[in-house]
Amino acid sequence: MLIPCPVCGQRDAGEFFYRGDATAARPPLEEEAERPWVEYVYARHNPRGEHLEFWQHAHGCRQLLVVRRNTETHEVFEARLVGPFGEGG
């Protein structure tokens, strides 16, 4: 499986560390109710098909990417930077 790192180009998935589901948004830190935090940590959509997920290019540019990938065919559609170097960062 190859991941198109926006910094390094097409790289083998073995260079990346998988950080899981990228769809759950962390509640604001002021959030005091338990339910939103429980859902953020434990609720997974876990789709068969397209999935947005975090991959860190640990053995490359070390940047955190959001990758859109098919969980059944392993087809990778896109990878974009997030964090300080990403869009809106």
Binding site: G20, D21, E39, Y42, A43, R44, H45, N46, P47, R48, T71
Partner: peptide, 18 residues
């Protein structure tokens, strides 16, 4: 297939990854 089958019953967000 738990997440996919349970979604048919309207249940989403189980603490399961495949």
């Amino acid at each position: 297939m738990t997440s996919e089958v349970m979604r048919l019953a309207g249940i989403d967000g189980l603490p399961i990854e495949s």
